[in-house]
Design a protein around this nucleic acid. Sequence first.
DNA 1: GTCTATATTGAGATAGAC
DNA 2: GTCTATCTCAATATAGAC
Lengths: 196, 196
Amino acid sequence: MTVTRSARRDEIVELAGQMFAERGFAGTTVREIADAAGILSGSLYHHFDSKEAIVDELLSTFLSETMASYRDALSAAPDPRSALRALVLIAFRSVHDHRAAVAVMHQEFHTLLQYPRFQYLRAVSDDAERLWVGVLRDGMRDESFRRLHDPVLTYRFIRDAVWNTVRWYDPDGRYRIETIANRYLELLLDGLGSRQ
Amino acid sequence: MTVTRSARRDEIVELAGQMFAERGFAGTTVREIADAAGILSGSLYHHFDSKEAIVDELLSTFLSETMASYRDALSAAPDPRSALRALVLIAFRSVHDHRAAVAVMHQEFHTLLQYPRFQYLRAVSDDAERLWVGVLRDGMRDESFRRLHDPVLTYRFIRDAVWNTVRWYDPDGRYRIETIANRYLELLLDGLGSRQ
DNA sequence: GTCTATATTGAGATAGAC
DNA sequence: GTCTATCTCAATATAGAC
């Protein structure tokens, strides 16, 4: 986490992130990353200790920024409904603004967890779960939301639907991210409708 | 698709599927698969032409079975609400019954699409989308469901939430798959509740 | 900060004996 | 149907010159 910042580093992380998102972490070679950056593979090791260090920087940066946004939003929200809406909007926003990081986190989470180095991913993921579930519980308590049978399950359904949009969302496509976010909020809050 | 069936083949596909689900397709070696099957890596090639052929068989078998279940359910369902419920239950059932195939499909879909050999994944995925979206449209038409702004978006939210459960569902954990399915249906049909 | 050159390891796959 | 033996290639990573 205590890394030396440089424009070149950030550039490489960005390029590598796009490739990881597209072909997977294991499916991307350091040579390809170096090619994209216009240098030879050996030169990459001047900037990073290893391929893992690159994905590590991509994810840790993204996760700390996202958690910070979550916490800011929570302290500004007047009630659980606003808080939930804010969290959902932040998440969709990062699908747009940090596509590669979201895609890699989403796609490589499980396989990266095998390595000790990436145990912090689990920790952050658990933190996020606690934060969202807290909002759902608050909303049940003050009756903004129906009594849910299980806020943990509800959170996971939300999380999975939101983050997965990164796999089909196209910044140049016909759905703007705000449109997607609003449609999702409508579905989440009102449901499909339960009339017989 | 026209493959010679044998118990040994099926066994290898099953073992390999578990490993692909756990470590990813690119992260699993043919040697590891052979080890798990109790043979040497060279011997694997008596059964399969390549590593890709193994994942191909895993996915194509799973997908044709799933699509068949979907179609059976649709022809048996008396109305759109029943049809939607049936589709959701089939999907959650396969998260339980075909964990590895669901996980691999979910996790490797995007990267496999790079290869011509796996273009059929896109085709099946599109078929499934048409089928689900048809049910949503039917339900809007007969007013079983609220008029949705976009049934395609709604379908994708559903699909992503349902298939992603494979990443955290534990067959020996505290949530039974039927419990998860029913909680999801409640959320989908009724929403969180939109009271101020 | 990048290059040249290369060490080292492990990957997918093949041929032919048993 | 499996093993022995091995080919071939590509992967991550390193050392030291420029």
